[in-house]
Design a protein around this nucleic acid. Sequence first.
DNA 1: GTTATAGGTGAGCGATCAATCACTCTGGAC
DNA 2: GTCCAGAGTGATTGATCGCTCACCTATAAC
Lengths: 189, 189
Amino acid sequence: MRDGSATREKINQAALELFARKGVAETTTRDIAGGAGIAEGTIYRHYKSKDELVRSLFLSLYSEQGELLAVQIRDESGIKEQIAVMIQLFCRLFDENRPLFTFLLLTQHGQLERVPDGIVTPVGVIREAITCAQAAGQIRKGDPDLLAAMVLGVVVQPAVFSVYGRLKQPYQDFSAELVQAAWGVLGLS
Amino acid sequence: MRDGSATREKINQAALELFARKGVAETTTRDIAGGAGIAEGTIYRHYKSKDELVRSLFLSLYSEQGELLAVQIRDESGIKEQIAVMIQLFCRLFDENRPLFTFLLLTQHGQLERVPDGIVTPVGVIREAITCAQAAGQIRKGDPDLLAAMVLGVVVQPAVFSVYGRLKQPYQDFSAELVQAAWGVLGLS
DNA sequence: GTTATAGGTGAGCGATCAATCACTCTGGAC
DNA sequence: GTCCAGAGTGATTGATCGCTCACCTATAAC
């Protein structure tokens, strides 16, 4: 039997690029098929519906990012280093694969509410690191969900503005300042 | 002549509520007409197209929020107080009109790139306050666009998570912590 | 009273799009 | 050599949706 996984990957790549550039609603299944160089019907050999394609893409990419972060900070013990490492990784990945993050940013609304339990998410990883640091007395008390959301916000909102051309310098130039600000959120110098 | 502004307002309200709840693409002009209690054709007496309705709604609400912030901080001289006042105002408004902010959050992608010059935006107001504070030597140097984006992120990302039920406490409970974190971003104690 | 104008109506049109399905092709199993 | 199943195809379809337009109504100007 021929292996269909290469075709599935072509669909994913084309969909990601188109979703990021035109938006999900504005991208038709014909567009995706055209971009992937396959027939429209083939999409439905791999996904039940367009909606399932979107959700599957979101979940796999979202959890993939979470796992990358988790692996990266595993060997760091201090929260300061963990934050710094995560932000540097994010900056690098954002620069290397802009469509991926644009897609995640613009589909988080509508997908965020149906993230199943047991998935490693970027916020979840940050939250865990913060909880550990609190237990070790490294940072002040406070709702870890809120602290994680704020740290994420410091990193993500500039990325959004960067995507829509409202920052003059490239995003990765700001790496050091983002780390500094994230520390500030947690009350670290 | 009869005045159509009341009808226009009904359209705006119904559209806002539906857009926030179902998303823009998933809301049909039929839905909007039904929600507003008017005929579908009436929408087109007030807006050239659905797209124009979305853009007009976004721009008027976005600049309205910007102007509210601008007025509120006009009499505050220190950046610490300005940040605190802005965040407290945001918390209150967010609580009072959740659909408004949900709508702004989920339409910023796709609308942000076509905000005309000369509009007072929330980021713009924060940016101005930061620039003044830098000139007065109250906070450290750094790209004011980046600093403003980070401050906004600290406030907005928790709001997103709040909307999608990923925070356990009501958003406005976090007002004090948000202020603290925003100060931290700017290097204030 | 006549005319003009703006606001409101809703059946219907044209276009679009997600999804289907009958069919073909390919390559291993036997 | 035959059979089978998974992979791929693309014309077709049914439904939906944005938008129009011929028509109606209410008010204002004269």
